[in-house]
Design a protein around this nucleic acid. Structure first.
Length: 810
RNA sequence: GCCCUUGUGGCGGAAUUGGCAGACGCGCUGGACUCAAAAUCCAGUGGUGGCAACACCGUGUGGGUUCGACUCCCACCGAGGGCACCA
């Protein structure tokens, strides 16, 4: 009877369910550990081999931590709102809720078949009204704090998006197209709900420093927030009393070198200041720009363009009149939508000035302005009171001057925009706001939450045609009347998918609480997430939004940690056997169900962890899978006879058999687990099994320790072997992790390497405590070393006890 | 263009602080078992030359530091990801 993965995996999955092995108590003297996976969107396609990679990693860590005496919170749930369900519903006439729940069931069965140690009592789904009640509650808090507001703003409008168009956030626009579906995006003013994430910009940047996250992700977030420090400078418009143009500049010290101003074509002042004879040219240019997509304005447009408005502004520092231009290289959405042109020291300004023959005055020494702009360091010239100063001194002095003369001040500017929070969709959390006929608006009272989505017929789900969400079709739900007879209309926009995923990690802490988002005592015990594993594709969107909401909840006193995820690890992608991203069209997709069926969950887990470092992309290999299975078979046969009995090689006698090998294995596997180096941990276990195969007798204690170390990786097999080996009726889960004896690792002798001129020429086994002189003497006496030294004169000898001797000779 | 990551046998990958490059697995080769095959067990396996001892070459390329470099420094090339007229 060989290793029967089907019987064993079923047996232990049932055992864990009935035994409630992985239920995490909310009160415990043990130290807590919170290991979290990014919860999946339960798509109709089911699980992909990429999913179990991260899940296996957190599962291994969770099981390891349990054995090390931690109380481990390891939950799973479903990010279940989202467009595919709504689109599917539209196509088939099915209710998105029913369809979503079916998908969740499929996902759950698949996830369970892999033997992950989740505490299923804490399962959540974002589409559950008892969950989104609290998503709506957080929105109401944001509203009360002035962090949620409605604004007529330039939005990214994707009119071709299936279902009648969609507004998307800046973060969801990639190269002028929607992140999902790739529909073209146009700038259009529309009324939208917006969250004031920019109010948290500084904290979102500064608090990154203390997080144990991959540097690349931190960099991406810093760059996304894009903090730059400079000054606001105000230029009076000549001949227009009181009208000012405000520009932002990181180099206010170059103000003496300004030779023109540029407004973005969409800037409010353009129409007011343009002179009569320039009106036509300006209007033509504006029209031209308005029809251009972002893509055309950036990627495709390498040539500077612009039009003079006919107006002039006064340079506050020297009274010079500077022509005011408009140009598309100045973006309305960044800074104040206006810049001062300092062509001598900014390449973009330089290109513009060259093209339109504008003055180029150097104000910093260095470079050659006949060729290009000079942005290097240098002493200021032609700059009045900052002449002779270096960069920082000049900046400080200029800002002081601007502040004294009311012409500007120090300013911090961000690339980050506020978060557009409304979606013209049915399948999302309703925004709990009522618009009354007198023009006022109120929140849905807290005790009436959750504001549930109405049941919709197939007909109602179709686009409203107005760009509004299909909820506008649900008349009964839409229209409300107050006690005083005032009529109102509910907000028809819903929240984006990011809403539910911005706080789900907190709900796991107290998943069924009807009175609060989570119980304060439980929040205080579990605190933030110790380990968060997921794909790098969430580097800015999800991780930035979740950090923002966590900080808001921190300010409200709900959570005690200012950051939600202490350690973040991005798993790499699992590529197809051809080293390309798995996709249906390439025909290289592997379904985890097939692997579990044929080889077992333990094999899949071992293989995915053995493929290479967790964080790197790795190609799938069918041969690799069979290799992993073969190894598990080999482990089984080491301990179990053909008839299912335990091998009689086992012995309780304590001699030195495998002593050193075992202790080394415990040390290395333990260290590797702490560092999440799963591939090398498995190879260490393989080496131990290879060593064990060479022995006639197997010390029982070592074999038990080995099975314990195998348990996080291949839990079903390990449980079965543990039961056979020890007769225990308990799960191996909470058996204390094996320890090693440092003394067993100490050798009496060491193999010493002898080098001549850095090349290994010989080796000798010497006493471990041999001194430097002993080593040198042994090296000099070595036959091969002597041969290689023949005819040479020894110049220098480097010897490190316990390691090597290098003789340098000429 | 800028930022981040990365480059090691036929393949996936290992190598603690600068100290034996290639652990472990796959594949391949040979042996044992078998009537035979599969499975399993054992052994070998970076390249070139040599019967061999051994020698030389070898971690993307070129240089540098060092007794010694996959590891540190400089320049370049390739791959992956992110951002892109950000004032």
């Amino acid at each position: 009877m060989g290793y029967d993965h089907k019987a064993i995996e079923k047996k232990w999955q049932n055992f864990w369910d009935e035994d409630q092995t992985f239920v995490a108590p909310d009160k415990s003297d043990k130290e807590k550990f919170y290991a979290l996976d990014m919860f999946p969107y339960p798509s109709g396609q089911g699980l992909h081999v990429g999913h179990p990679e991260g899940y296996t990693a957190t599962d291994i860590v969770s099981r390891f931590k349990r054995a090390r005496g931690f109380n481990v919170l390891h939950p799973m749930g479903w990010d279940a709102f989202g467009l595919p369900a709504e689109q599917y519903a539209l196509k088939t006439g099915h209710n998105p809720a029913t369809f979503t729940d079916e998908n969740i069931q499929t996902f759950k069965n698949q996830v369970k078949s892999l033997g992950f140690s989740y505490d299923w009592n804490r399962e959540i789904k974002t589409t559950d009204p008892s969950y989104y009640k609290w998503t709506q509650w957080i929105f109401e808090k944001l509203y009360e704090m002035g962090l949620a507001y409605e604004d007529e703003i330039m939005v990214n409008w994707a009119p071709d998006f299936p279902g009648g168009g969609l507004v998307v956030a800046n973060e969801e626009v990639i190269n002028g197209k929607t992140e999902r579906g790739g529909y073209p995006v146009y700038r259009k003013p529309m009324k939208q709900w917006v969250l004031r994430i920019t109010a948290y910009a500084d904290r979102l940047i500064d608090d990154l420093d203390d997080l144990d996250w991959p540097e690349a992700i931190k960099e991406q977030q810093r760059h996304w927030i894009g903090r730059s420090i400079g000054a606001s400078i105000r230029f009076a418009v000549d001949g227009h009393d009181g009208k000012q143009i405000e520009v932002f500049s990181t180099r206010p010290d170059t103000l003496f070198g300004a030779s023109y101003l540029v407004l973005s074509p969409e800037h409010d002042l353009v129409d007011q200041i343009t002179t009569a004879d320039q009106k036509a040219a300006v209007a033509t240019y504006q029209e031209e720009i308005a029809t251009k997509s972002d893509l055309e304005r950036t990627d495709l447009n390498k040539d500077k363009s612009g039009v003079f408005t006919g107006a002039y502004a006064k340079n506050p520092v020297n009274g010079e009149l500077l022509p005011i231009w408009i140009a598309d290289y100045v973006l309305a959405s960044y800074g104040t939508g206006a810049v001062m042109g300092v062509p001598a020291h900014d390449q973009r300004d330089y290109d513009f000035a060259k093209k339109f023959d504008l003055r180029i005055t150097p104000v910093i020494e260095g470079g050659d302005i006949d060729k290009e702009a000079y942005s290097g360091e240098g002493v200021h010239i032609n700059s009045g009171f900052v002449d002779g100063l270096g960069k920082q001194e000049a900046i400080d002095k200029m800002i002081a001057w601007l502040e004294e003369n009311c012409a500007g001040e120090k300013k911090v500017n961000y690339r980050l925009r506020d978060w557009i929070f409304s979606r013209q969709r049915y399948w999302g959390e309703p925004i709990p706001v009522i618009h009354w006929e007198d023009g006022t608006q109120t929140l849905v009272p807290e005790d009436e939450l959750p504001l549930r989505l109405p049941e919709m017929t197939e007909e109602q789900l179709k686009p409203s045609g107005t760009g509004e969400s299909p909820l506008a079709n649900a008349k009964d739900w839409l229209e409300v009347t107050r006690e005083d007879g005032m009529k109102g209309r509910r907000e028809t926009n819903t929240m984006p998918q990011w809403a539910g995923s911005s706080w789900y990690f907190l709900r796991y802490i107290d998943a069924k609480n009807g009175e609060a988002l989570a119980d304060p005592e439980k929040l205080a015990y579990w605190k933030n997430v110790d380990l968060y594993v997921g794909g790098a594709e969430h580097a800015v969107l999800h991780l930035l939004y979740a950090r923002f909401w966590n900080k808001v909840l921190y300010d409200l006193g709900v959570v005690k940690d200012k950051e939600p995820f202490q350690k973040l690890v991005n798993q790499g992608m699992i590529l197809g056997a051809n080293h390309e991203k798995m996709s249906k069209s390439k025909g290289n997709v592997v379904n985890p169900d097939d692997i579990v069926n044929e080889y077992g969950a333990d094999t899949l887990r071992i293989y995915e962890m053995f493929m290479g470092p967790l964080t790197q992309n790795k190609p799938w290999s069918e041969e690799g899978v069979t290799g992993s299975r073969r190894w598990l078979d080999r482990v089984w046969r080491l301990l179990i006879n053909e008839d299912g009995s335990i091998t009689d090689k086992l012995t309780d006698k304590a001699d030195d058999t495998l002593k050193k090998e075992y202790n080394l294995t415990v040390k290395k596997v333990t260290e590797d687990l702490e560092n999440m180096h799963f591939n090398t941990a498995i190879s260490t276990l393989m080496v131990f099994v290879n060593d064990a195969y060479k022995e006639d007798k197997l010390p029982a204690a070592y074999m038990e320790g080995f099975v314990q170390m195998l348990a996080p990786f291949a839990p079903h097999l390990a449980e079965e072997l543990w039961q056979k080996l020890t007769g225990s009726k308990e799960s191996i889960t909470y058996v204390a992790w094996p320890t090693y004896d440092e003394e067993a690792l100490v050798d009496d002798t060491k193999e010493i390497i002898f080098q001549v001129n850095g090349k290994v020429r010989s080796k000798q086994v010497l006493p471990a405590d041999a001194s430097q002189d002993d080593l040198i003497a042994a090296a000099k006496a070595d036959e091969k070393v002597q041969k290689n030294l023949d005819g040479l004169e020894i110049k220098k000898i480097i010897a490190i006890p316990g390691k090597f001797v290098n003789i340098v000779a000429k």
